[in-house]
């Protein structure tokens, strides 16, 4: 078997989010729920303020009626190269792999929730309760993805199961991975193509090209987390007349 140290990866996975295209439709949110066996956010969970959403769409108001805008931004784990969630985990349950991803090893996690405090993007979710589904609904669960028990932390995995499958299938069929062969559940769903997934090491990939866009920025730049999720700024064609808050 190849050990992690020997497996020098040729991939650096990442995502580019074109905020200008996002309509807030929630298709990505739902696709991620279904793909990743995310515990159901029941009404009680909502009221307890423990809602799960590996990818969420934040909504912000700008201005006041009638010069008001509601703007949306999808936020998921930024897969920081310099992830503040990683060094604080006492048991290495969350760590950085060789492919640019922040990964979460569920069975190592003891549930200190320290990593969640450490994550400035608030994208980590703790299983306060054992997740339950009525028996018949369990038929839907994705067998590629572990069902997390209570007491552990979870978050966007970049749909690692799809990445692994894509890489292995390409190896099995003896061809090179092409840009677009691997899509995450959310990027596949997103009808406006606001979300694009790919390999930054492939310089012709869509993400590599989008990463050079003038509108590129990263969230909480000042924290130097060096995310692998890049954003393209929202364009305001009305001349920026509508200002921010404060």
């Amino acid at each position: 078997m190849v050990t992690a140290a020997e497996r020098v990866s040729s991939h650096k996975w990442g995502m580019v989010v074109d905020v200008d295209r996002c309509t807030g439709c929630q298709a990505c949110v739902m696709a991620c729920q279904a793909e990743n066996n995310i515990p159901l956010s029941t009404e009680d969970i909502y009221r307890q303020k423990r809602t799960f959403a590996w990818i969420r769409v934040e909504r912000y108001w700008y201005g006041d009626f009638p010069d008001v805008k509601a703007r949306f931004i999808p936020i998921m784990c930024q897969h920081c190269e310099n992830a503040p969630c990683e060094p604080v985990c006492p048991v290495f349950a969350t760590y950085h792999n060789t492919e640019g991803m922040n990964v979460q090893i569920y069975n190592r996690c003891v549930g200190t929730r320290y990593c969640a405090n450490g994550c400035p993007y608030n994208v980590r979710f703790f299983n306060y309760w054992e997740p339950v589904w009525p028996v018949s609904l369990r038929n839907q669960l994705n067998p590629d993805v572990t069902v997390r028990s209570r007491g552990i932390m979870e978050k966007c995995s970049f749909c690692v199961q799809r990445i692994r499958r894509g890489v292995r299938e390409a190896a099995r069929d003896g061809h090179d991975l092409q840009d677009g062969d691997i899509g995450t559940a959310c990027t596949d769903a997103c009808p406006t193509n606001a979300l694009v997934f790919g390999d930054y090491n492939d310089e012709n990939s869509r993400v590599s090209i989008m990463a050079k866009d003038d509108r590129k920025y990263t969230l909480l730049d000042a924290l130097n987390t060096d995310p692998n999720v890049l954003y393209l700024a929202q364009v305001d064609a009305t001349g920026g007349a509508i200002g921010g808050h404060d």
Partner: peptide, 22 residues
């Protein structure tokens, strides 16, 4: 009462047409 950004450009950076993010 209403969720509004606390800071200009965070998290949604807004550019005018032709303006760069920088």
């Amino acid at each position: 009462d209403i969720i509004r950004p606390a800071e200009h450009g965070v998290p949604i950076l807004i550019v005018e047409p032709g303006q760069t993010a920088h």
